[in-house]
Design a protein around this nucleic acid. Sequence first.
DNA 1: CCCCTGCAAGGAGGCACTTTCATGTCACCA
DNA 2: TGGTGACATGAAAGTGCCTCCTTGCAGGGG
Lengths: 129, 129
Amino acid sequence: MSPSNTNVRAKRLPEHDCATVRRVVDRIGDKWSLYLIGTLKDGPMRFNEIARNIEGISQRMLTLTLRGLERDGLVSRKVYPTKPPSVEYVLTDLGRTLLEPVNGLVLWAQKNTTQILQSQEKFDKKTAT
Amino acid sequence: MSPSNTNVRAKRLPEHDCATVRRVVDRIGDKWSLYLIGTLKDGPMRFNEIARNIEGISQRMLTLTLRGLERDGLVSRKVYPTKPPSVEYVLTDLGRTLLEPVNGLVLWAQKNTTQILQSQEKFDKKTAT
DNA sequence: CCCCTGCAAGGAGGCACTTTCATGTCACCA
DNA sequence: TGGTGACATGAAAGTGCCTCCTTGCAGGGG
């Protein structure tokens, strides 16, 4: 698994697999994307509704993160002809399909967080000596 | 879904779920962790073997990333009493269990990369107008 | 003697991400 | 009239990640 695009014969995942999954992880790995996906999974929401739901996100980051999700086709944006403007965001069909693998990570995380924290504690104790 | 630790009754994932999955995504979301996990899934490897397998990674980042994976209990490290030193890294049982959800992301990515790229192209064309 | 090997570590610098602050437009309300 | 709301945008600043370079130790080989 190497970020290089060259094909290398080796006992490891094909490199394009890793590059491909990296793009997904880069997408959902920024600070706010998973929060947005999780918020929108319950149905359409407007910009400030989302802002109120997600504690701590700046308006700048809400705009930018929604923009990125829309660009990737995971979220769609519908502007209503109102004043002030009213914009509705909703997970697309594609965005919905991402919920299953994301849930896989959630379940794994729930199952293993305790063990990971214990491992970190043990490791830190060992290296602090 | 909010990074806050407060419990909020809302039609969305429990907040600690999101904080929990964020830790996993932070773990595997750095530049090199997935490459290392993918490389080690085939069996134990030594430090410079890994370095040669993963194109582009600096020695600094290899050390730091292995350190982080070890701290989380996903990788284990065995030092052999040789000169020069010889260290073997291997995925732990816990590390192996991460392969399934990671594969879920790989499969989703393989299935949807084309659609995402098309969506990006369409979006970029629209905003360039 | 010099270079290479293995496996690190520290520090400087660059880049990207995020926050903060200010700004914009228009309608509505007290 | 001024403040508020909705939904943005741009710029500056701070932070963190990563690369690059150098260093360290000991053994082996040309």
